[in-house]
Computed example of a mutant assay.
Amino acid sequence: MTAMIFTDIPVSEIDLSDTGFRITGSGCDIEHLSASICRYGIMVAPLVMCQRDKYIVVSGFRRIEAALHSGLSRISCRVMPAGQFLDAALAAVTENSFSRELTPAELIRATTLLMGFMDAKSMAENATSIFNMPLNPGYIHTLARIHTMPDPVLDLLEQGQISIKACKNLLTLDSDILSEFLHLFSQIKVSSGIQMEIIAWAKEICALEKISLSRLIQESPLDGNDAGHRDMGALGKQFKSFLAQRRFPALTAAKFKAQEQIKTLDLDSGCQLTLPENFEGMVYTMQMEFKNEDEFNMRLNRLAKLSEHPAFKSLMAR
Results as ranks from 00 to 15, higher is better:
L157G: 13
S99E: 11
N132P: 11
I130D: 01
E158G: 05
I140Y: 00
H141Q: 10
M115C: 14
A120E: 13
L113S: 08
I162L: 15
S99Y: 12
L157S: 11
L143S: 02
N132A: 15
A124T: 04
I108P: 00
I130P: 03
E125P: 03
G160H: 06
P134C: 08
T128R: 15
I162Q: 05
I164V: 15
R145I: 00
F117M: 08
A105K: 02
I146W: 02
S163L: 12
E106H: 01
N136I: 09
N132T: 02
N126K: 14
E125Y: 13
A110Q: 03
F98S: 13
P104I: 13
R145A: 13
Q159R: 14
L157M: 10
Q159E: 09
H141C: 14
G138L: 14
T142Q: 11
N136M: 09
I130T: 06
N126C: 05
F117Y: 15
L102P: 01
E106P: 00
L113M: 11
L154K: 05
E125A: 14
M115E: 08
N136Y: 13
A166F: 04
A144Y: 12
Q159G: 05
T112V: 03
R145W: 00
S99I: 07
T112C: 05
N136Q: 09
T148R: 15
G116S: 10
A120N: 04
P152N: 07
M123K: 01
L143M: 12
S122V: 01
A110M: 05
E158D: 12
A124F: 07
F98P: 07
E101N: 03
F117E: 06
L143Y: 12
M115Q: 12
E158I: 07
E106D: 07
V153P: 00
A105M: 06
M133K: 14
G160Q: 04
I146P: 00
F117A: 10
D151W: 12
I108G: 04
I164Y: 09
A105G: 10
L114K: 05
E106G: 00
E158L: 09
A127S: 15
P137G: 06
H147I: 00
Y139M: 11
K165S: 14
A166M: 09
K121Y: 09
T112R: 07
Q159Y: 11
L107F: 03
Y139E: 04
Y139K: 11
R109D: 00
T111I: 08
L143Q: 04
I140Q: 00
Q161N: 13
N136T: 07
K165H: 13
C167G: 07
P137N: 03
I162V: 15
M123V: 02
C167S: 12
N126S: 13
P137R: 06
L114F: 09
L156N: 08
M133Y: 02
T128I: 15
P134G: 07
G116D: 06
I140H: 02
R145K: 04
T148N: 11
M123F: 06
M133Q: 12
S163G: 12
P134M: 07
Q161E: 08
T112H: 04
S99P: 05
